[in-house]
Amino acid sequence: MSFTDRLREHVTDNGTGMLHDLLFAVVWVALVSFLFDFVFASAPTWVFYMFLAAGIPAYFGFFFSLELAKQEHGE
Rank of each mutant, 00 (worst) to 15 (best):
F34N: 04
T4G: 02
K70Y: 13
L19S: 08
D5V: 10
F3H: 04
A25M: 13
L35A: 12
V39T: 07
M1I: 10
M1K: 14
E67T: 11
F38I: 07
L52A: 00
T4K: 13
V11I: 15
T4S: 07
W46V: 14
A43C: 05
F40P: 03
Y49D: 09
R6S: 07
S2R: 04
F63S: 05
P57D: 05
F3E: 02
S2V: 08
R6L: 15
L22A: 15
F38G: 00
H10G: 12
H73N: 13
T4R: 13
E9S: 13
A30W: 08
F60T: 14
K70T: 04
F3D: 01
V39I: 14
G61P: 01
T16F: 12
H73G: 11
V27C: 06
S65I: 10
G74V: 04
V29N: 02
A58E: 07
V27N: 00
L23T: 15
F24L: 06
A30G: 15
E9T: 12
L68Q: 14
F63Q: 03
L68I: 01
L68F: 07
E75M: 09
D37I: 12
A53N: 09
A58Y: 07
F34V: 12
F64Q: 08
Y49G: 12
R6Y: 10
D13C: 08
G74L: 02
L31C: 15
I56E: 04
V26G: 06
L35D: 01
G55C: 05
Y49E: 09
A54W: 02
G74Y: 01
F60E: 01
F24N: 07
M18W: 11
F51E: 03
S33K: 14
M18H: 07
A58C: 06
W28R: 12
Y49L: 10
F36D: 01
F60Y: 13
G74N: 02
F64N: 08
L35S: 09
F38Q: 05
L23P: 06
Q71K: 15
E75P: 05
A30Y: 06
E9H: 06
F51R: 08
V29K: 02
W28A: 02
E72S: 09
D37Q: 13
A43W: 02
A25C: 12
L22G: 11
L35H: 03
A54R: 08
V39A: 00
V27H: 00
M50W: 15
A54Q: 06
E72W: 11
Y59G: 03
A53P: 05
H73R: 14
V11H: 00
M18L: 15
F62R: 12
A25Q: 08
V32T: 06
F36N: 02
A43Q: 14
V29W: 07
F24E: 04
L52D: 04
L7A: 14
Q71V: 07
F51V: 09
T12G: 09
L22C: 10
F3I: 15
I56C: 13
V26K: 05
A69S: 13
T16W: 09
M1S: 11
L19T: 11
R8F: 01
E67Q: 10
